[in-house]
Simulated scan of single mutants.
Amino acid sequence: MAAVENSNSLAQTNQQQPPIEEPILSPSHLDGVAYLYGHPLLNSLSPPLHQTIYNALQLNWIQLPLSSVYGSSSTYPPPYTRSPPIDKFLPNIRANPKFVGSSVTMPWKVSIMEHLDDLTEEARQIGACNTIYIRQDPETGRKLLVGTNTDCIGVREALRQATPLSSNPDAFRGKPGLIFGGGGTARSAIYAMRKWIGCSRIYIVNRDAAEIEAILHEDRKRASSSLQQVPIIPIMTPAEVDQLDEYPPVIVSAIPNYPPKSADEIRARAVLERFLSSSSPPNEGRVFLEMCYHPLPWTQIAELASGHGWNIVLGSEALIWQGIEQARLWTGRDIVSVPGLVPKIKDFVAGTIEAKAPAVKTNL
């Protein structure tokens, strides 16, 4: 799972810079190679997170960021990264006997799907692929590249381990949920709320009405299933919040950590604040998952929700659990059952974030 990013500014920057391609590396001294495919990748915690797992499992593997850096720290825009096009990436990994799997991030999460051999239910329902793993065709023995989405696993596990779900997995079943955002992370959260959390309906709040309509349009196009029976309901104004008969005890925020500036951003923030200040359910029963973890997981919105008495779950938790699921698919090992490994992963992520904090605060 990539950090929630400002896709508009990224797209503008990419248009300004020529693509730079480098060879797709597969170091000869390694037994297995996973990739991180997409851009920008400069601040990704995925490679060191996976290295923590490989080291613990005594695997001679690595995850390589597959991109080239352009720009410099002394120029504006700051350095960004570019990855090779799909038509170069996929033939390379098909032919590579050391390839074990790949993380997929912006801008390839949607466009790569049609080029893969198969997709899981998660990828189809969410409409995005963040993970490629290998499956052997039982009849031909051919190596198949399968796309899935583990971001939803990250959302599920981050919520499941939060109060009150940690003691009662069905605490939110039959109750509404709320998504704040309209991008790929919001789609993963919708799937998790429908599939595992058991929400009765899902409210969605976003600055861009067109993004909400895109989510609704995609949802209508999918094959009818029990998931689609859980409606997605846009909420556009604080007055609409006041008219609801039941407020959500679980909220997932999936937007970048920027203060609202435009009229639509200010409106969306006001709607969120109205939800946060609702008096029902009791404070101790409410969970707020802040999916943005870059540059730091404790965001302005997390602070706002905390001030209204919500239990805060940080996006770094979702990052950890989606990575653990990727490692399970790639290694074939139950990562959670390895003694001491999950605490080690959590200590690494917490330590990395803590080390970045002084530099981030200095630049604010």
Rank of each mutant, 00 (worst) to 15 (best):
N6H: 07
T13E: 09
Q16A: 15
L36G: 02
P40G: 05
L41E: 06
P48K: 14
H50Q: 09
A56W: 03
L57E: 03
I62T: 15
P65D: 05
L66N: 10
P77N: 08
P78T: 11
P79A: 00
K88L: 07
F89T: 04
R94W: 02
A95K: 11
P97W: 00
V100S: 09
S111G: 10
S111W: 02
I112H: 09
H115E: 14
G127Q: 05
T131I: 05
E139M: 15
E139I: 14
L145C: 04
V146E: 15
T150V: 01
C152H: 08
I153C: 15
K175T: 10
G177F: 01
G184F: 00
T185P: 06
R187V: 02
A210W: 06
E211S: 14
E211V: 00
E213W: 07
H217D: 14
L227G: 06
I235N: 02
I235Y: 10
T237E: 04
Q243S: 13
K261E: 15
L272G: 03
S278K: 13
S280E: 15
P281L: 12
Y293T: 07
T299A: 04
G307R: 12
I320Q: 09
Q322M: 05
D334C: 07
I335W: 08
P339K: 13
L341W: 05
F348C: 02
K356V: 11
